[in-house]
């Protein structure tokens, strides 16, 4: 598939274009947070409980006089970084296990699939809460917890792809020429099974951001990182006094997750054009 085909496929989905623009805006906000809102977002810059559009706080201030807008801008970094890294870790776990299972088949496949099933049975948010709580909240534990609960669908997907590609002629040819299993997996099968994995991964970033915000909402965020979930969680009990404290960070989450979902769909349309057409 050429680049032009890809973009044409992507651009046919208007939602995806809108999503991409939104996502770029959020990324810009994260990148330029220091310029837009210099200094520390934890800084008690103004009087507590300032409503939106008041003097020096565009979106209002919280109970300690911290600027909500600054928090949202700096929180964008935390959300995006955690979303991306935990997805990468989940990909590593999921694709590796799926590849091994699908390529080897037999008892290996069986064992891996039982293991995957086990993880799918444990309610995944409960598991994430427990993991973060036990290993104390920090960026690392949060990323690991999200990855640990997110990999099973990727493993299943990768396994299915590998299972079907393994019997294809080009793979069989590689086997007869005596290439090693690892080379075959990395050189032959993986590149050909990439597009569904990319689509799932882009949707998973959105899920990861939601998961992170939910953990932070429960007070299981990294105490040194200003994140959107933390802001909503801290504002929960103040909702009668200051609705803006929970409203705006929530909007930020919705827009970011929405943009990622839209982009994911666009990728799907662009990378799997046949499927896209059949869906009308």
């Amino acid at each position: 598939m050429t680049n032009r085909d890809f973009w044409r496929g992507f651009a046919r989905n208007k939602g995806a274009v809108l999503g991409l623009l939104l996502l770029l805006a959020v990324m810009a906000l994260a990148a330029f947070a220091d310029i837009l809102f210099p200094g520390d977002p934890w800084e008690m810059a103004t009087a507590p409980f300032q409503p939106p559009l008041s003097g020096d706080a565009l979106l209002g201030s919280d109970m300690l006089g911290r600027d909500i807008a600054a928090g949202i801008a700096h929180g964008a970094r935390v959300s995006l970084v955690i979303g991306l890294i935990s997805t990468a870790v989940a990909l590593l776990i999921g694709v590796t296990l799926g590849a091994v299972a699908g390529f080897h088949g037999g008892w290996v496949d069986d064992a891996v699939m039982r293991f995957t099933e086990l993880f799918q049975t444990i309610p995944n948010f409960v598991l994430a809460v427990v993991l973060v709580a036990i290993f104390t909240p920090s960026l690392t534990t949060i990323v690991i917890a999200i990855a640990v609960v997110s990999w099973p669908p990727l493993a299943r997907l990768a396994r299915a792809e590998f299972l079907s590609l393994r019997s294809r002629e080009f793979v069989q040819a590689a086997v007869t020429t005596g290439q090693s299993n690892l080379t075959i997996i990395l050189r032959q099968i993986l590149p050909n099974s990439l597009s569904p994995i990319i689509v799932s991964a882009s949707l998973m970033v959105a899920t990861a951001i939601l998961l992170e915000s939910s953990l932070s909402f429960l007070g299981l965020g990294d105490p040194n990182a200003m994140s959107w979930g933390y802001m909503v969680g801290a504002a929960r009990t103040m909702i009668r006094q200051a609705w803006w404290m929970s409203f705006f960070p929530g909007i930020a989450i919705v827009l970011t997750v929405l943009s990622l979902n839209l982009v994911g769909e666009g990728l799907n349309d662009a990378l799997n054009p046949k499927l896209a057409r059949s869906r009308g």
Partner: peptide, 12 residues
Amino acid sequence: ETWSRLGEYLKQ
């Protein structure tokens, strides 16, 4: 929460 807020204040 109150103790968490205090922690955030001390940091600042």
